[in-house]
Each structure stands twice: as structure tokens, then as C-alpha cells.
């Protein structure tokens, strides 16, 4: 008997402790899944950078509010889109706001205190949605993907 055909939409999930060193891992995994999912080579740099920005923001938020909680990344290999969802567990965190008073001067400077991360995400992702909920912030980004 032939094996069942795998569904066309696959999801790879990644959770990691909110440490800066793990953001690189998330970038690498996202790029690999995007390539496999049919995202054009010319867009892979954009995926890598946008995912890194979203994960960096989540790591920063977790380090301030809930360092024991992991950051979650979902990579959805859809029929014609590759979608990435980065979720943090920091309730009612307004991602569009400027630096919060709790941010240490060092961290504020590292981030430029300018919300450059969101400018980069908005400039790179083909489609972006940012939602702040009582349980945390969810950044959804997607790019076109071609299936052979």
C-alpha cells in the first residue's frame, strides 16, 4: 500500500529561550524552511533579516518581562505563501511604542531607541500584521512561494 501523501501545508515550530544567541538559530531555520518552501533565492535575505528582527524584539521583551518563557516561531509552508509568525508572551506590550522607561540605557542604545526593527520588518516583508493581545504580541509576515 502506498504511503499517504503529505499535506501541502506544513508547519515547522521553533521555541527558544530568550537569549540573543538563539536569534541566529531562528534566522537559519527560517531561511532553510523558506528555501524548501519555494521562496525565491532573491527573497531569502529578506526573510532572514525580517525573522531576525521580529525574534530580536521578542527576546528583548522577554528579557525584561518574562525571561523564563520561550519565544515561539511558526514557519508555515503554504500553497502559495510562506508565512512566519513570531509570538512573545509579554502581555499588552505595545510594539509600536518607543523605548519604555524600564529599558536599560544599554539595551535602549543597542536598539537605537528608534524602533528601527519595525521599520526594517515593514520594509522587507511582503505582508506584515502586528497584533497585541492580552497574552502577548504576534508578528505575522509572509512572502510569495512557488511550488514545482
Amino acid at each position: 500500500m502506498a504511503p499517504e501523501i503529505a499535506p501541502r501545508t506544513a508547519t515547522v515550530e521553533l521555541t527558544f529561550s530568550p537569549l540573543p544567541v538563539h536569534v541566529r538559530t531562528a534566522r537559519l531555520v527560517a531561511t532553510a524552511v523558506a528555501r524548501r518552501g519555494g521562496v525565491e533565492e532573491t527573497l531569502l535575505d529578506e526573510v532572514r533579516l525580517a525573522v531576525g528582527e521580529a525574534c530580536s524584539r521578542a527576546v528583548e521583551a522577554h528579557q525584561q518581562q518574562c525571561p523564563a518563557e520561550p519565544v515561539r516561531v511558526e514557519l508555515r509552508d503554504g500553497a502559495d505563501r510562506f508565512e512566519v509568525v513570531v509570538t512573545d508572551r509579554v502581555p499588552n506590550d505595545d510594539p509600536a511604542a518607543g523605548g519604555t522607561p524600564e529599558v536599560s540605557p544599554d539595551l535602549a542604545e543597542l536598539n537605537g531607541n528608534l524602533n528601527l526593527g519595525f521599520a526594517v520588518i515593514a520594509g522587507l516583508a511582503d505582508d506584515v500584521n502586528i497584533s497585541s493581545t492580552p497574552s502577548g504580541v504576534e508578528i505575522t509576515m509572509s512572502w510569495p512561494a512557488k511550488k514545482d
Binding site: 531576525g52 528582527e53 543597542l110 537605537g112 528608534l114 526593527g117
Partner: peptide, 13 residues
């Protein structure tokens, strides 16, 4: 090989 907004922030600083 790679630069993100954190790197930009450091350069601005």
C-alpha cells in the same frame, strides 16, 4: 555578512 537594526542602533550611538 549580516546587519540588523541592533547593528544600526550601535552605529547611530
Amino acid at each position: 555578512e549580516f546587519l540588523d537594526s541592533t547593528g544600526l542602533g550601535v552605529l547611530v550611538g
